[in-house]
Amino acid sequence: MHTMWKGTISFGLVNIPVKMHAATENKDIKLRNLHKECRTPVKYQKVCPNCDKEVENDEIVKAYEYAKNKFVVLDDDELENLKKEQTDKAVEIMDFVNLDEIDPIYFEKSYYLSPNDGGAKSYGLLRSALQDTGKIGIAKMMIRSKEQLAVIRIYENTLVVETIHYPDEVRDVKDVPNVPAENNAEEKELETAKMLIDQLSADFEPEKYEDEYRTALMELIEAKKEGEEVTTAQETPQPDNVTNLMDALEESLNRAQKDKSSKTKQKTAPSKEKKKVAK
C-alpha cells in the first residue's frame, strides 16, 4: 500500500512514528473527450485572455483575489516556508472526545495509519487506550499543503485518521431554502411511515450495496469492445525541425520580397512627379 505521508502522532509524552495510507479509492470510470469529427482526444490549454497566448507552467504564479480583479501575489518560496513550518511539527492529539459527539456532516476522508520503524509498541499502546476508553483523538495535521482537523480512531484493529471539516467550512442550515419549521404530517401518516421504517430496518452490511451505474457502464464498454465498436485516434503529424526551418525560410523570403517591392515603388513615385513638373 502506497505511503503518502510520514510523521509522528503524539499524546502527552508518547510519540508514535507512523505512515499514512489512503483508506479509500475513487472507482469512478473516467471518460475522455474526443473531437467528434476525427476521434482525437481534445487538448485543454492554459491561455491568458489578455495576451491571447498559451501560458506555460513556469509562467504561472499563485495569487489570492481579495476583491474583483484585485490580487495579492504569493511566490513559491513564501508558500513553501509556510508549509515547512507546519510539516516539521509532530501531530499532537489535542483532545479526546466521544465519537457520537461529532455529526457525520463533519467527516471528509479516511486514511489508514501503520507504525513506522520502532513504532509498533507505542502504536499498540494508543490503540489499546482508545479501545478501553471508547474515546477518539482530535488533532491537527498538514496533508497536501492544507492544515486539516482530524480524528484518530480505530477501525478493525487499525488506527485511522479521519479528516474533518472546520466549523466555518460547514454551511449554516439556516441558509437552506424552503425548510418547513414544523412537521405538519397527520398522526395516521406518521404511524404508517414509522411502520414502513420498521419493516425496512436491517443491520448495515456494506457488501450488499453496489454502484449499479458503474457496473452497467463497464458492461456497455466491454460489449462495445467485443463487438469491435471501437475507434482509434488519428496520430497528429508532428512537423520536424527541417520542415519548420524551411517554412520559416520561405516565409522570410516572401516578406523580404514584399518589402523590397514596396520600397521600390516608394522610390519611383517621386521621380514621376518631377517629370510632370519639368514638362
Results as ranks from 00 to 15, higher is better:
Glu162Tyr: 00
Lys68Pro: 10
Asp88Ala: 11
Ser110Ala: 14
Ala90Cys: 04
Phe107Ser: 12
Tyr111Glu: 04
Val161Trp: 00
Val176Lys: 04
Met142His: 06
Pro180Trp: 01
Asn81His: 14
Asp100Lys: 11
Ile197His: 09
Lys140Glu: 10
Asp77His: 11
Asp76Arg: 14
Leu130Phe: 07
Glu92Leu: 04
Gly119Arg: 03
Asp198Pro: 08
Arg153Cys: 06
Tyr64His: 10
Val179Lys: 08
Asn81Trp: 05
Asp172Gln: 11
Glu182Asp: 13
Thr133Ser: 15
Met142Thr: 11
Ile136Asp: 11
Thr163Met: 06
Asp95His: 09
Pro180Gln: 07
Pro180Asp: 06
Ile154Val: 07
Ser114Val: 02
Lys135Pro: 07
Ile154Trp: 01
Val72Arg: 10
Asp198Val: 04
Thr133Asp: 09
Arg153Gly: 10
Lys188Ser: 04
Lys146Glu: 15
Leu130Asn: 14
Thr87Met: 05
Val161Asn: 03
Met94Ile: 10
Gly124Ala: 06
Ala67Val: 01
Ala193Pro: 15
Asn116Tyr: 02
Pro115Tyr: 06
Ile138Phe: 02
Asn178Val: 04
Glu156Gln: 13
Glu85Leu: 13
Thr192Gln: 15
Lys174Cys: 00
Val161Leu: 08
Asn178Tyr: 05
Ile138Tyr: 02
Ala150Asn: 01
Val97Phe: 01
Met142Phe: 02
Val72Cys: 10
Asp100Asn: 14
Ala120Pro: 08
His165Leu: 13
Met94Phe: 03
Ile164Asn: 00
Asn98Lys: 12
Thr158Phe: 02
Glu182Lys: 13
Gln131Glu: 07
